[in-house]
Design a protein around this nucleic acid. Structure first.
Lengths: 134, 134
DNA sequence: TATGGTCCTTCCAGTCACCGGAAGGTCAAC
DNA sequence: GTTGACCTTCCGGTGACTGGAAGGACCATA
C-alpha cells in the first residue's frame, strides 16, 4: 500500500502519516523506488492511533497505548489508569470552558447589541465587577 | 512602571508582555536606559487583554476588542457579534470534549483494571464496534 | 516515444501563544 | 566596589500538524 491509500483507509492525511513516521510511531517498509510500503499491520496501527487521537489522547499517550497494546503481558490496570488520567484532563478542560461560557454569556446577555456604543461586554473586560455582571 | 511591576498588577508574566509588544498589541514608552516605561493606560490595556484571554478570546480577537474599546463611535452590535462567535466556538469545543468523554467513559467502565491483560479500552481502540461499547 | 497527470519523496517554513535560557547592560543598596 | 535583582535582545523549543516548493516515479494515452 502506498501512503495515500493507507491514509484513506485509516482516515488520516498523508502528511500526518509522514509525521508519525518521523516521530517514530510507525516504521513502514520502503520499496526500491523509495516509496513507503505499508503492510496491514501498519494500517491497523494507524487506525488505532487515529482513534486514540480522536479521543483526545496526546501523541505521547498514543505511544504508551501502542506499547501496552503490543505488550501481551500488560495489566489492564495500566491502560485504565492512563485512560482515567486523560478523562480527568478532559473534565478539567470542560470545566474551564464552561466557566468561560458562563461569564461570557452573562456579558452578552447584558449587551443591547444595537447601534449605540455602550457595551457591558467591553466595560466588563475593562474592569470586572464594576461593569455589570462579572 | 517597569515590566515586572506592571506584570504583577495586570497578572501577566513579563515574557508575555514583551510578546504583546512584539505583535503590536501595546506600545509602551522607553526610558533613556532602554527600559520599557508603562503608563496607567498600558496597565489598563494589559489587564483588559488578560481578561479577554482568560475568557478564551484569541489574540486577534483581543486586537479587535481593543479596537472596538478605543472606538467611541462603535456599535455594541459589533462587540456582541464577536462575543457570540466566540461563544459558539466554546460551545463546539465543549460538545467535542463531551463526546470524547462519553466514549472514553464507556470504555473505562468496561475495563476491569486488574493484573490481567484483557482490556476493552485497547480492543475498542483497535476496532470500534467489535471491542465492546463504542 | 512524448506527454500529461497523478502520485511519491525530502526539506523548509509557518501555525498559536507563549516559555526557557543565554549573554550582556543597568540600577540600588550595602 | 560588589553583590543581586532587575532589565534588554536574541534564539530555540513547545504540539501536532499543515502548506508549499523542488524534484523524482509511475502510468495511460496519443
Amino acid at each position: 500500500m502506498n501512503i495515500k491509500e493507507v491514509g484513506q483507509k485509516a482516515g488520516l492525511p498523508a502528511k500526518t502519516i509522514r509525521y508519525y513516521e518521523e516521530i517514530g510511531l510507525i516504521r513502514p517498509l520502503r520499496g526500491a523506488n523509495g516509496y513507503r510500503a505499508f503492510r496491514e499491520a501498519d494500517l491497523h496501527k494507524l487506525a488505532f492511533i487515529g482513534r486514540a487521537r480522536g479521543l483526545g489522547f496526546t501523541i505521547e499517550e498514543c505511544r504508551r497505548l501502542l506499547a501496552l497494546y503490543d505488550d501481551k503481558a500488560r495489566a489492564s490496570a495500566d491502560v485504565k489508569a492512563l485512560a482515567e488520567g486523560h478523562l480527568r484532563d478532559i473534565a478539567a478542560k470542560i470545566a474551564a470552558l464552561r466557566a468561560m461560557e458562563a461569564t461570557l454569556q452573562g456579558l452578552v446577555q447584558a449587551c443591547a447589541g444595537d447601534a449605540r456604543p455602550d457595551c457591558p461586554i467591553l466595560t466588563g473586560l475593562a474592569a470586572p465587577g464594576a461593569g455589570c455582571c462579572d
